[in-house]
Every structure is written in structure tokens, then in C-alpha cells.
């Protein structure tokens, strides 16, 4: 029921003008938590951004100096590099509703 009402709206609000969605996923170590986040993100992109997304996973355990640039505090964090402007979503991305709002695919209610 709910997904049915959501899907057409989400599809209508999709921004086809962006040809490439560049997403960065910040994690620390390959813990189950980070695995969950990556899986959630991939699933989301396959659903909404099929073919036009690219995900970069940054493990801060290996590259801690990168945390400063995107002002990473919370883990996991997804940063939308492209299209501009930069968007930040924190959490394991289990909440698709919030992720849609966070990625500007749907305006906040």
C-alpha cells in the first residue's frame, strides 16, 4: 500500500538531468555495520539510480586523513559528491524514506 503511493511520486521527483551520481560511503573497518550500510546503499541505488551511480567506499581505518575533508563524525556516512550541492546522510541507510529526502530525491515532508 504504502510503497505503491511512494513509488510514482519518487519516480516523478527523480532528477534525470543528473547524468552521474557520485556517492562516497565512509566506513571504519569492514565491520558488519559497514557491510550493512554498503548493502543498503547498493540496493537503494539499484532501485532509484540504476546505471547512473558510482559508489566509492572509504575506509577511515586505512585513510584517516580523509575524514577531515568531508567533516565526517558519524559512521557510516554517505556523501553525495555529484550532483552538486553536496549532501550528507548519516546512518546505516536502513531508512529509505530519509535517504530519499537526504539525497534530494524527494522534498522533506
Amino acid at each position: 500500500m504504502k510503497t505503491k503511493t511512494v513509488k510514482p511520486r519518487a519516480a516523478a521527483k527523480l532528477r534525470p538531468l543528473a547524468k552521474l551520481w557520485q556517492l562516497r560511503l565512509y566506513v571504519v573497518d569492514s565491520t558488519p555495520k559497514s557491510q550493512t550500510a554498503l548493502a543498503n546503499l547498493k540496493q537503494f541505488c539499484e532501485t532509484h539510480l540504476k546505471g547512473i551511480y558510482r559508489i566509492t567506499v572509504i575506509d577511515l581505518l586505512k585513510q584517516p586523513q580523509l575524514a577531515k575533508g568531508d567533516q565526517i563524525l558519524a559512521i557510516p556516512t554517505v556523501v553525495r559528491q555529484l550532483p552538486k550541492p553536496v549532501r550528507t546522510i548519516i546512518g546505516n541507510l536502513s531508512d529509505v524514506e530519509h535517504l530519499l529526502v537526504g539525497l534530494d530525491l524527494r522534498p522533506a515532508v
Partner: peptide
């Protein structure tokens, strides 16, 4: 205003930094 929450998280990033 620029941060959207989606699911659980921790502040490991702060610790790493």
C-alpha cells in the same frame, strides 16, 4: 540542516579523526 539521518550510526568518525 545539511545532515540527514537514516538508520543507526555511531561517532567512530570523530574517534578516527
Amino acid at each position: 540542516s545539511e545532515v540527514q539521518e537514516s538508520g543507526e550510526y555511531d561517532l567512530e568518525g570523530l574517534f578516527v579523526r
